[in-house]
Computed example of a mutant assay.
Amino acid sequence: MKILLSGGGTGGHIYPALALIRRLQALDPSVEILYIGTEKGLESRIVRNAGIAFESVEIQGFKRSLSISNVKTIQLFIKSIQKSKKIVKAFQPDVVIGTGGYVCAPVVYAASKLGIPTIIHEQNSVAGVTNKFLARYVTKIAVCFEEARAEFGKYAEKVVYTGNPRAQEVVGIKPSAILEEYQLEAIRPTVLIFGGSRGARSLNEAFLEALPILATKDYQLLFATGEIHYEKIKEQVQTHLAKTHSIAVVPYIENMPEVFANVELVVSRSGATTLAELTALGLPSILIPSPYVTNDHQTRNAESLTKRGAAKMIAEKELNGVSLTQAIDELMLHEDVREAMAAEAKKLGLPKAADHLIQIMQEITH
């Protein structure tokens, strides 16, 4: 079987594609995979480093205001469709899957015009511009939140609720002594706090404000600042860290899924991939949506959990040291509340998301 995937711009579009690829390869080592992205996007490095065949097209997004650059965008889109058709014809895939980002538009559009079965995968509860554009052309639309179904209007009959393939990768991870690598105790109740690979300034500031109180708690904390903030924050917390062995501050966590499997509570943004992992594992969480994303989709993502009692949310404008500490204490000092939230999160998890998506692929190619 030959499968062509496309997705780029952010890790939230790339990592679900990689998770799907790894599952496909595990089920059938003979499967042939080709990935189309852009040279400027994260995907060019991440996908190549994963040893996956990679081709590129040049594309950029439209400006929301009137701009001369939109003329260039249209020109690039037309050229990228032409190049995508050449790549698709040469590779002859059985199915083409787009996981989001501008690069998917010419690739999936070209494949659909060539009569090849196509799927778009929408990770968020609010559909992206590219996926809304592609909805009319594709064979199936896979979503991770039921709330996203309505986003596709008259094409909603194409929607299939599959979940995020990334979730299937984390469910098999067992508890370990990974926390000892951060000079924390492996068996002590632990809170993980992070704001993404680049960090979140508001979360970092709230943590610094709360640190004198958090340092006195019976539970321990692992805090990832984001690489660009690390040195500055490290200077500010050294005095407190010298007095306690219950808090570890690091710039970034490479093996996040394994850390997830060894903590009791997560405090984070509400990106789609993170929520897929949290619900797959049944992890309680305090979510602080980024207000700086398109259509405020992180708030909608978080609300899909909070309205079911599967997470707690703090709006960024309400985030400070006091609100952060109170929210953490509410869960870490009351095991019954934490367990109830974990059970609700687990109900929302889709641990076979990759297999479900593969099943859809098989159905539309036969």
Results as ranks from 00 to 15, higher is better:
Leu4Glu: 09
Leu5Asp: 10
Gly12Val: 07
Pro16Glu: 08
Pro16Gln: 10
Leu18Gln: 07
Ala19Pro: 05
Arg22Cys: 03
Arg23Tyr: 11
Leu27Gln: 15
Leu34Val: 11
Tyr35Asn: 09
Gly37Trp: 08
Gly41Lys: 12
Glu43Pro: 08
Ile46His: 11
Phe54Asn: 06
Glu55Gly: 11
Glu55Arg: 14
Ser56Lys: 15
Val57Gln: 11
Glu58Ser: 14
Gln60Ile: 11
Gly61Val: 14
Ser69Gln: 13
Lys79Glu: 10
Ser80Pro: 09
Phe91Ala: 08
Gln92Thr: 04
Pro93Asn: 06
Val103Asn: 02
Gly115Ala: 01
Glu122Gly: 11
Gln123Trp: 06
Ser125Gln: 13
Leu134Phe: 07
Arg136Pro: 12
Val138Ile: 09
Thr139Asn: 12
Val143Glu: 05
Glu169Asp: 13
Ser176Lys: 11
Glu185Cys: 07
Ala186Glu: 10
Leu192Thr: 01
Ile193Gln: 03
Gly195Gln: 04
Gly199Ile: 02
Arg201Pro: 01
Arg201Tyr: 03
Ala206Arg: 01
Phe207Tyr: 02
Glu227Val: 00
Leu241Asp: 06
Ala242Pro: 04
His245Lys: 13
Ser246Met: 13
Val250Trp: 11
Val250Ala: 06
Val250Ile: 11
Ile253Arg: 09
Asn255Ser: 13
Pro257Ile: 00
Pro257Cys: 02
Val259Pro: 01
Val263Asp: 06
Val267Gln: 02
Ser268Val: 03
Glu277Ala: 08
Ile286Pro: 04
Leu287Lys: 03
Pro289Gln: 04
Thr299Glu: 15
Asn301Ala: 09
Leu305Tyr: 03
Arg308Ala: 15
Ala310Tyr: 01
Ala315Phe: 07
Gly321Trp: 08
Ser323His: 04
Glu335His: 15
Ala342Gln: 08
Ala343Asn: 07
Ile360Trp: 10
Met361Thr: 00
Gln362Ala: 07
